[in-house]
Simulated scan of single mutants.
Amino acid sequence: MASGGRAARLAPVVEMAEKTEKAAAQRLGHFQGQVNLANSKLGDLENFRGEYQAQWVERGSQGVTGQWLRNYQYFLGQLETAVGQQRQSLQWHENNLNKARESWQQAYARVEGLRKLVQRYADEARQLEDKREQKLMDELSQRLPRKEVY
């Protein structure tokens, strides 16, 4: 019975570890969503920049004014800055994702370890109970009068 008690006493610890693991998994999902969003925004900016540069090639072949060229270069510079900032944002979100993944992996490993421990305690308790029952059955069978066979 002592081993079964150990398993039962661990139940609140396991429950708390499971809640921690679930919260870590939710954070992991949140940060994965943030990475996906940042990556999408970066792709959009890079596509827009590519289209804008293609527009330059098309327009440039027709001849441009100095003012148009200055405006183009200014806007392209702003796009480059935006792309750089979005890359930094993506990296920041990826770092958060990696930390969240590590946190979840640790929480998951803890839950799994606790579950195995509880299972081991339950198995030990069952084995002790089986031994007790077997001993009781042996004692009872020894006390019963035996019929002699002639």
Rank of each mutant, 00 (worst) to 15 (best):
A11K: 14
A11D: 02
P12G: 04
V13F: 02
V14G: 00
V14S: 04
E15N: 05
M16H: 09
M16L: 14
M16C: 02
A17Y: 02
E18F: 00
K19H: 03
K19A: 12
T20L: 15
T20G: 00
T20I: 14
T20V: 12
E21M: 15
K22R: 15
A23G: 02
Q26P: 00
R27H: 05
L28F: 04
L28W: 03
G29Q: 13
F31H: 12
Q34Y: 01
V35L: 08
V35I: 06
L37G: 01
L37A: 13
N39E: 06
S40C: 03
K41Y: 04
L42C: 03
L42H: 06
L42R: 14
L42Y: 08
D44Q: 12
D44L: 09
D44Y: 07
L45C: 10
L45F: 11
N47D: 07
N47F: 05
F48Q: 10
R49H: 03
R49N: 08
G50N: 14
E51W: 06
E51L: 13
E51N: 13
Y52V: 07
Y52T: 00
Y52I: 05
Y52M: 07
Q53C: 02
Q53W: 00
Q53Y: 02
Q55H: 10
W56I: 10
W56N: 06
V57K: 15
E58H: 11
E58L: 11
R59N: 07
R59D: 07
G60R: 07
S61H: 09
S61K: 15
Q62N: 03
V64A: 12
V64L: 15
T65F: 00
T65K: 10
G66H: 05
Q67K: 15
Q67P: 00
Q67D: 07
W68E: 15
W68A: 11
R70V: 13
N71S: 14
Q73C: 01
F75C: 00
F75Q: 12
Q78N: 14
Q78R: 13
Q78F: 14
L79Y: 04
L79A: 09
E80W: 00
E80D: 15
T81H: 08
T81D: 09
T81N: 05
T81A: 04
A82D: 03
A82Q: 11
A82V: 01
A82P: 00
V83H: 04
G84Q: 05
Q85G: 05
Q86N: 01
R87S: 13
Q88L: 13
Q88E: 07
Q88F: 01
S89C: 06
Q91C: 01
W92F: 10
